[in-house]
Design a binder for these strands. Structure first.
Lengths: 190, 190
DNA sequence: GTCTATATTCCGATAGAC
DNA sequence: GTCTATCGGAATATAGAC
Protein backbone atom coordinates (compact mmCIF):
# COMPACT_ATOMS: atom_id res chain seq x y z
CA UNK A 1 0.00 0.00 0.00
CA UNK A 2 1.52 3.28 -1.13
CA UNK A 3 2.33 5.94 1.43
CA UNK A 4 0.96 8.66 -0.83
CA UNK A 5 -2.32 6.81 -1.07
CA UNK A 6 -2.57 6.63 2.70
CA UNK A 7 -1.79 10.31 3.06
CA UNK A 8 -4.47 11.20 0.53
CA UNK A 9 -7.06 9.31 2.56
CA UNK A 10 -5.84 10.96 5.73
CA UNK A 11 -5.98 14.48 4.29
CA UNK A 12 -9.30 13.73 2.62
CA UNK A 13 -10.84 12.59 5.87
CA UNK A 14 -9.57 15.69 7.62
CA UNK A 15 -11.19 17.82 4.90
CA UNK A 16 -14.53 16.00 5.13
CA UNK A 17 -14.54 16.63 8.88
CA UNK A 18 -13.62 20.30 8.59
CA UNK A 19 -15.13 21.52 5.29
CA UNK A 20 -17.61 18.83 4.29
CA UNK A 21 -17.59 16.45 1.32
CA UNK A 22 -18.72 19.08 -1.17
CA UNK A 23 -16.52 21.73 0.42
CA UNK A 24 -13.14 20.41 -0.67
CA UNK A 25 -11.48 19.52 -3.96
CA UNK A 26 -8.64 17.33 -5.20
CA UNK A 27 -6.67 20.55 -5.42
CA UNK A 28 -6.87 20.99 -1.65
CA UNK A 29 -5.32 17.57 -1.21
CA UNK A 30 -2.64 17.80 -3.89
CA UNK A 31 -1.44 21.19 -2.65
CA UNK A 32 -0.66 19.75 0.77
CA UNK A 33 1.29 16.91 -0.84
CA UNK A 34 3.08 19.19 -3.28
CA UNK A 35 1.80 17.38 -6.36
CA UNK A 36 -0.70 18.17 -9.12
CA UNK A 37 -4.36 17.48 -8.51
CA UNK A 38 -4.37 14.94 -11.32
CA UNK A 39 -1.92 12.80 -9.38
CA UNK A 40 -4.63 12.22 -6.83
CA UNK A 41 -6.76 10.78 -9.62
CA UNK A 42 -4.15 8.11 -10.15
CA UNK A 43 -4.88 6.72 -6.70
CA UNK A 44 -8.58 7.55 -6.68
CA UNK A 45 -9.98 7.86 -10.22
CA UNK A 46 -13.13 9.60 -8.98
CA UNK A 47 -14.09 11.45 -5.86
CA UNK A 48 -16.54 8.63 -5.22
CA UNK A 49 -13.60 6.21 -4.89
CA UNK A 50 -11.92 8.53 -2.43
CA UNK A 51 -15.10 9.04 -0.41
CA UNK A 52 -15.71 5.32 -0.20
CA UNK A 53 -12.13 4.69 0.91
CA UNK A 54 -12.39 7.35 3.58
CA UNK A 55 -15.44 5.69 5.06
CA UNK A 56 -13.97 2.20 4.81
CA UNK A 57 -10.75 3.30 6.51
CA UNK A 58 -12.75 4.92 9.26
CA UNK A 59 -14.93 1.84 9.69
CA UNK A 60 -11.85 -0.38 9.83
CA UNK A 61 -10.31 1.82 12.52
CA UNK A 62 -13.51 1.41 14.50
CA UNK A 63 -13.34 -2.38 14.22
CA UNK A 64 -9.73 -2.42 15.31
CA UNK A 65 -10.58 -0.31 18.32
CA UNK A 66 -13.43 -2.64 19.27
CA UNK A 67 -11.18 -5.70 18.86
CA UNK A 68 -8.53 -4.02 20.95
CA UNK A 69 -10.92 -3.20 23.75
CA UNK A 70 -12.22 -6.75 23.74
CA UNK A 71 -8.77 -8.29 23.99
CA UNK A 72 -7.88 -5.88 26.79
CA UNK A 73 -11.05 -6.97 28.59
CA UNK A 74 -12.45 -3.46 28.80
CA UNK A 75 -15.78 -3.57 30.56
CA UNK A 76 -18.82 -2.03 28.84
CA UNK A 77 -18.50 1.27 30.64
CA UNK A 78 -14.89 1.72 29.60
CA UNK A 79 -15.66 0.69 26.04
CA UNK A 80 -18.40 3.26 25.73
CA UNK A 81 -16.27 5.94 27.34
CA UNK A 82 -13.36 5.18 25.00
CA UNK A 83 -15.68 5.54 22.03
CA UNK A 84 -17.04 8.80 23.36
CA UNK A 85 -13.54 10.12 23.99
CA UNK A 86 -12.96 10.03 20.24
CA UNK A 87 -15.60 12.74 20.06
CA UNK A 88 -13.94 14.74 22.82
CA UNK A 89 -10.78 14.72 20.71
CA UNK A 90 -12.71 15.81 17.61
CA UNK A 91 -14.22 18.63 19.62
CA UNK A 92 -10.79 19.85 20.68
CA UNK A 93 -9.70 19.83 17.03
CA UNK A 94 -12.91 21.55 15.86
CA UNK A 95 -13.77 18.58 13.69
CA UNK A 96 -17.22 17.06 13.42
CA UNK A 97 -18.17 13.42 13.13
CA UNK A 98 -17.87 11.62 9.77
CA UNK A 99 -21.45 10.42 10.07
CA UNK A 100 -22.86 13.87 10.70
CA UNK A 101 -20.78 15.44 7.97
CA UNK A 102 -21.84 12.93 5.33
CA UNK A 103 -25.37 12.94 6.71
CA UNK A 104 -25.71 16.50 5.46
CA UNK A 105 -24.48 15.64 1.96
CA UNK A 106 -26.08 12.23 1.65
CA UNK A 107 -28.37 13.23 -1.22
CA UNK A 108 -25.41 14.30 -3.32
CA UNK A 109 -23.48 11.06 -2.80
CA UNK A 110 -23.48 8.23 -5.33
CA UNK A 111 -24.82 4.83 -4.37
CA UNK A 112 -21.56 3.08 -3.40
CA UNK A 113 -20.55 5.75 -0.92
CA UNK A 114 -24.11 6.08 0.34
CA UNK A 115 -24.24 2.35 1.02
CA UNK A 116 -20.89 2.37 2.79
CA UNK A 117 -22.15 5.15 5.02
CA UNK A 118 -25.36 3.30 5.87
CA UNK A 119 -23.36 0.16 6.64
CA UNK A 120 -21.09 2.03 9.03
CA UNK A 121 -23.91 3.74 10.92
CA UNK A 122 -25.75 0.42 11.20
CA UNK A 123 -22.63 -1.23 12.55
CA UNK A 124 -21.96 1.43 15.19
CA UNK A 125 -25.56 1.48 16.36
CA UNK A 126 -25.74 -2.27 16.71
CA UNK A 127 -22.35 -2.37 18.46
CA UNK A 128 -23.56 0.20 20.96
CA UNK A 129 -26.89 -1.57 21.36
CA UNK A 130 -25.17 -4.78 22.39
CA UNK A 131 -22.76 -2.89 24.61
CA UNK A 132 -25.59 -1.11 26.42
CA UNK A 133 -27.56 -4.31 26.78
CA UNK A 134 -24.67 -6.25 28.29
CA UNK A 135 -23.57 -3.35 30.45
CA UNK A 136 -27.05 -2.98 31.88
CA UNK A 137 -27.17 -6.68 32.80
CA UNK A 138 -23.99 -6.14 34.79
CA UNK A 139 -25.42 -3.05 36.45
CA UNK A 140 -22.89 -0.76 34.77
CA UNK A 141 -25.60 1.19 32.97
CA UNK A 142 -29.15 2.12 33.82
CA UNK A 143 -31.79 3.18 31.30
CA UNK A 144 -35.41 2.39 30.50
CA UNK A 145 -35.58 2.60 26.69
CA UNK A 146 -34.93 -0.35 24.40
CA UNK A 147 -31.13 -0.60 24.04
CA UNK A 148 -31.17 0.33 20.35
CA UNK A 149 -33.21 3.49 21.04
CA UNK A 150 -30.81 4.45 23.79
CA UNK A 151 -27.91 3.90 21.40
CA UNK A 152 -29.60 6.11 18.80
CA UNK A 153 -29.95 8.87 21.37
CA UNK A 154 -26.33 8.71 22.46
CA UNK A 155 -25.02 8.74 18.90
CA UNK A 156 -27.32 11.63 17.99
CA UNK A 157 -26.14 13.66 20.98
CA UNK A 158 -22.51 13.08 20.06
CA UNK A 159 -23.00 13.95 16.39
CA UNK A 160 -25.01 17.13 16.81
CA UNK A 161 -23.05 18.03 19.93
CA UNK A 162 -19.96 18.51 17.77
CA UNK A 163 -21.89 20.50 15.18
CA UNK A 164 -23.43 22.80 17.75
CA UNK A 165 -20.12 23.23 19.56
CA UNK A 166 -18.48 24.38 16.36
CA UNK A 167 -21.18 27.02 15.90
CA UNK A 168 -21.38 28.06 19.54
CA UNK A 169 -18.60 27.04 21.90
CA UNK A 170 -16.41 24.02 22.56
CA UNK A 171 -17.65 23.90 26.12
CA UNK A 172 -21.16 23.13 24.90
CA UNK A 173 -19.97 19.77 23.69
CA UNK A 174 -18.48 18.98 27.07
CA UNK A 175 -21.83 19.79 28.63
CA UNK A 176 -23.60 17.35 26.34
CA UNK A 177 -20.86 14.77 26.84
CA UNK A 178 -21.31 14.90 30.60
CA UNK A 179 -25.08 14.68 30.32
CA UNK A 180 -24.80 11.46 28.33
CA UNK A 181 -22.77 9.82 31.05
CA UNK A 182 -25.26 10.97 33.67
CA UNK A 183 -28.13 9.70 31.55
CA UNK A 184 -26.94 6.11 31.76
CA UNK A 185 -25.24 6.09 35.15
CA UNK A 186 -26.98 3.75 37.61
CA UNK A 187 -28.90 5.73 40.23
CA UNK A 188 -28.75 4.65 43.87
CA UNK A 189 -32.10 3.37 45.13
CA UNK A 190 -33.97 6.00 47.15
CA UNK B 1 -40.54 42.70 -2.19
CA UNK B 2 -40.35 40.86 -5.50
CA UNK B 3 -42.04 37.51 -5.87
CA UNK B 4 -39.04 36.11 -7.76
CA UNK B 5 -36.79 37.10 -4.90
CA UNK B 6 -38.99 35.26 -2.44
CA UNK B 7 -39.09 32.17 -4.61
CA UNK B 8 -35.30 32.16 -4.88
CA UNK B 9 -35.00 32.16 -1.09
CA UNK B 10 -37.58 29.42 -0.84
CA UNK B 11 -35.87 27.19 -3.41
CA UNK B 12 -32.49 28.00 -1.93
CA UNK B 13 -33.58 26.96 1.53
CA UNK B 14 -35.01 23.72 0.18
CA UNK B 15 -31.68 23.01 -1.51
CA UNK B 16 -29.66 23.72 1.65
CA UNK B 17 -31.88 21.28 3.53
CA UNK B 18 -31.66 18.54 0.91
CA UNK B 19 -28.23 18.90 -0.72
CA UNK B 20 -26.26 21.16 1.62
CA UNK B 21 -24.88 24.65 1.10
CA UNK B 22 -21.94 23.49 -1.02
CA UNK B 23 -24.07 20.93 -2.82
CA UNK B 24 -26.21 23.29 -4.91
CA UNK B 25 -25.56 26.04 -7.43
CA UNK B 26 -27.40 29.09 -8.79
CA UNK B 27 -28.11 26.91 -11.81
CA UNK B 28 -30.23 24.59 -9.67
CA UNK B 29 -32.35 27.55 -8.64
CA UNK B 30 -32.63 29.26 -12.01
CA UNK B 31 -33.65 26.06 -13.76
CA UNK B 32 -36.66 25.67 -11.48
CA UNK B 33 -37.67 29.28 -12.19
CA UNK B 34 -37.06 28.98 -15.93
CA UNK B 35 -34.52 31.80 -16.04
CA UNK B 36 -30.76 32.04 -16.53
CA UNK B 37 -28.53 31.51 -13.52
CA UNK B 38 -27.23 35.06 -13.86
CA UNK B 39 -30.71 36.39 -13.14
CA UNK B 40 -30.38 35.02 -9.64
CA UNK B 41 -27.29 37.20 -9.21
CA UNK B 42 -29.46 40.26 -9.77
CA UNK B 43 -31.33 39.51 -6.56
CA UNK B 44 -28.40 38.03 -4.67
CA UNK B 45 -25.05 39.26 -6.04
CA UNK B 46 -23.13 36.54 -4.26
CA UNK B 47 -23.99 33.21 -2.74
CA UNK B 48 -23.11 34.72 0.60
CA UNK B 49 -25.99 37.19 0.20
CA UNK B 50 -28.35 34.35 -0.58
CA UNK B 51 -27.14 32.25 2.32
CA UNK B 52 -27.53 35.12 4.74
CA UNK B 53 -31.05 35.81 3.48
CA UNK B 54 -32.02 32.17 3.84
CA UNK B 55 -30.97 32.17 7.48
CA UNK B 56 -32.62 35.52 8.19
CA UNK B 57 -35.88 34.39 6.61
CA UNK B 58 -35.78 31.23 8.65
CA UNK B 59 -35.04 33.14 11.84
CA UNK B 60 -37.90 35.54 11.12
CA UNK B 61 -40.29 32.63 10.61
CA UNK B 62 -39.20 31.32 13.98
CA UNK B 63 -39.91 34.66 15.67
CA UNK B 64 -43.34 34.86 14.05
CA UNK B 65 -44.15 31.39 15.27
CA UNK B 66 -43.09 32.26 18.79
CA UNK B 67 -45.13 35.49 18.72
CA UNK B 68 -48.09 33.54 17.43
CA UNK B 69 -47.90 30.93 20.13
CA UNK B 70 -47.61 33.64 22.78
CA UNK B 71 -50.68 35.49 21.53
CA UNK B 72 -52.64 32.25 21.39
CA UNK B 73 -51.61 31.60 24.99
CA UNK B 74 -49.98 28.27 24.20
CA UNK B 75 -48.60 26.78 27.39
CA UNK B 76 -44.93 25.78 27.48
CA UNK B 77 -45.62 22.14 26.64
CA UNK B 78 -47.60 23.04 23.55
CA UNK B 79 -44.99 25.56 22.47
CA UNK B 80 -42.21 23.01 22.68
CA UNK B 81 -44.29 20.39 20.92
CA UNK B 82 -45.16 22.82 18.13
CA UNK B 83 -41.49 23.56 17.64
CA UNK B 84 -40.64 19.88 17.61
CA UNK B 85 -43.40 19.17 15.10
CA UNK B 86 -41.50 21.29 12.59
CA UNK B 87 -38.85 18.58 12.75
CA UNK B 88 -41.44 15.84 12.31
CA UNK B 89 -42.49 17.58 9.11
CA UNK B 90 -38.89 17.86 7.93
CA UNK B 91 -38.43 14.17 8.61
CA UNK B 92 -41.45 13.30 6.46
CA UNK B 93 -39.99 15.41 3.67
CA UNK B 94 -36.49 13.93 4.09
CA UNK B 95 -35.07 17.34 4.88
CA UNK B 96 -32.60 18.04 7.65
CA UNK B 97 -32.45 21.05 9.95
CA UNK B 98 -30.93 24.32 8.71
CA UNK B 99 -28.66 24.44 11.75
CA UNK B 100 -27.32 20.95 11.22
CA UNK B 101 -26.85 21.47 7.51
CA UNK B 102 -24.89 24.70 7.91
CA UNK B 103 -23.10 23.27 10.94
CA UNK B 104 -21.33 20.87 8.59
CA UNK B 105 -20.26 23.62 6.19
CA UNK B 106 -19.53 26.30 8.77
CA UNK B 107 -15.80 26.48 8.01
CA UNK B 108 -16.51 27.24 4.35
CA UNK B 109 -18.93 30.07 5.11
CA UNK B 110 -17.90 33.72 5.09
CA UNK B 111 -18.17 35.80 8.24
CA UNK B 112 -21.59 37.43 7.66
CA UNK B 113 -23.38 34.13 7.12
CA UNK B 114 -21.41 32.49 9.91
CA UNK B 115 -22.49 35.24 12.34
CA UNK B 116 -26.11 35.00 11.24
CA UNK B 117 -26.01 31.28 11.93
CA UNK B 118 -24.51 31.73 15.38
CA UNK B 119 -27.13 34.36 16.19
CA UNK B 120 -29.96 32.05 15.20
CA UNK B 121 -28.68 29.09 17.21
CA UNK B 122 -28.14 31.33 20.24
CA UNK B 123 -31.67 32.65 19.90
CA UNK B 124 -33.28 29.22 19.67
CA UNK B 125 -31.31 27.85 22.59
CA UNK B 126 -32.16 30.77 24.84
CA UNK B 127 -35.82 30.64 23.78
CA UNK B 128 -35.97 26.98 24.69
CA UNK B 129 -34.07 27.55 27.92
CA UNK B 130 -36.66 30.08 29.09
CA UNK B 131 -39.47 27.84 27.92
CA UNK B 132 -38.14 24.85 29.83
CA UNK B 133 -37.52 26.94 32.92
CA UNK B 134 -41.04 28.38 32.97
CA UNK B 135 -42.64 25.08 32.08
CA UNK B 136 -40.85 23.32 34.90
CA UNK B 137 -42.05 25.89 37.40
CA UNK B 138 -45.61 25.10 36.32
CA UNK B 139 -44.96 21.37 36.58
CA UNK B 140 -45.34 20.82 32.84
CA UNK B 141 -41.78 19.57 32.50
CA UNK B 142 -39.45 17.65 34.74
CA UNK B 143 -35.67 17.51 34.41
CA UNK B 144 -32.60 17.84 36.59
CA UNK B 145 -30.05 19.58 34.37
CA UNK B 146 -29.69 23.35 34.10
CA UNK B 147 -32.37 24.52 31.65
CA UNK B 148 -29.83 25.63 29.03
CA UNK B 149 -28.10 22.23 29.10
CA UNK B 150 -31.42 20.49 28.72
CA UNK B 151 -32.22 22.76 25.77
CA UNK B 152 -28.88 21.91 24.17
CA UNK B 153 -29.66 18.22 24.49
CA UNK B 154 -33.11 18.54 22.94
CA UNK B 155 -31.84 20.59 20.02
CA UNK B 156 -28.95 18.18 19.45
CA UNK B 157 -31.31 15.20 19.44
CA UNK B 158 -33.58 16.89 16.91
CA UNK B 159 -30.74 17.95 14.62
CA UNK B 160 -28.84 14.66 14.49
CA UNK B 161 -32.09 12.72 14.62
CA UNK B 162 -32.97 14.05 11.18
CA UNK B 163 -29.49 13.32 9.85
CA UNK B 164 -29.48 9.77 11.15
CA UNK B 165 -33.02 9.17 9.91
CA UNK B 166 -31.99 10.17 6.41
CA UNK B 167 -29.15 7.66 6.49
CA UNK B 168 -31.08 4.89 8.21
CA UNK B 169 -34.85 5.08 8.39
CA UNK B 170 -37.52 7.71 8.94
CA UNK B 171 -38.86 5.74 11.88
CA UNK B 172 -35.61 6.29 13.76
CA UNK B 173 -36.41 9.97 14.02
CA UNK B 174 -39.82 9.19 15.48
CA UNK B 175 -38.12 7.03 18.09
CA UNK B 176 -35.86 9.88 19.10
CA UNK B 177 -38.75 12.33 18.99
CA UNK B 178 -40.74 10.22 21.41
CA UNK B 179 -37.77 9.78 23.72
CA UNK B 180 -37.38 13.54 24.01
CA UNK B 181 -40.95 13.92 25.19
CA UNK B 182 -40.49 11.12 27.70
CA UNK B 183 -37.25 12.69 28.91
CA UNK B 184 -39.00 15.82 30.11
CA UNK B 185 -42.42 14.44 31.04
CA UNK B 186 -43.14 14.78 34.78
CA UNK B 187 -42.94 11.39 36.49
CA UNK B 188 -45.58 10.46 39.08
CA UNK B 189 -44.11 10.21 42.58
CA UNK B 190 -43.44 6.61 43.57
C1' DG C 1 -35.86 47.09 -12.55
C1' DT C 2 -35.23 42.63 -14.67
C1' DC C 3 -32.82 39.49 -17.08
C1' DT C 4 -29.18 37.56 -20.73
C1' DA C 5 -24.72 37.11 -22.92
C1' DT C 6 -20.41 36.42 -21.55
C1' DA C 7 -16.04 36.18 -18.75
C1' DT C 8 -13.28 33.83 -15.37
C1' DT C 9 -12.04 30.64 -12.27
C1' DC C 10 -12.18 26.20 -10.50
C1' DC C 11 -13.75 21.45 -10.57
C1' DG C 12 -13.42 16.52 -11.62
C1' DA C 13 -11.48 13.70 -14.96
C1' DT C 14 -8.59 11.73 -19.25
C1' DA C 15 -4.64 10.91 -22.07
C1' DG C 16 -0.20 10.45 -22.19
C1' DA C 17 4.87 11.57 -20.50
C1' DC C 18 8.48 9.75 -17.66
C1' DG D 1 3.87 2.63 -11.28
C1' DT D 2 3.71 7.55 -10.66
C1' DC D 3 2.78 11.88 -12.01
C1' DT D 4 1.87 16.15 -15.43
C1' DA D 5 -0.25 18.59 -19.26
C1' DT D 6 -4.53 19.41 -20.60
C1' DC D 7 -9.58 19.03 -21.49
C1' DG D 8 -14.72 19.71 -21.02
C1' DG D 9 -17.85 21.44 -18.22
C1' DA D 10 -19.81 23.64 -14.20
C1' DA D 11 -19.39 27.20 -10.71
C1' DT D 12 -19.60 32.07 -9.33
C1' DA D 13 -19.77 36.46 -10.98
C1' DT D 14 -19.70 40.94 -14.21
C1' DA D 15 -21.10 43.90 -17.90
C1' DG D 16 -24.48 45.31 -20.44
C1' DA D 17 -29.12 44.58 -23.22
C1' DC D 18 -34.01 45.39 -22.86
Amino acid sequence: MSITREKIIEIGEELVLTKGYNGFSYQDISTVLGIKNAAVHYYFPSKENLGTSIIKTNAQRFEEMVDNMESLNFDEWNQLESFMKLYLKSNRESKICLLGSLGTDVNTLSDPIHQELTKMVDRIISWMETLLQNGMKKGLFQFTLPARDQALRILALLIAGLQLARILNKSDFKTIYQSILEEITPKPQS
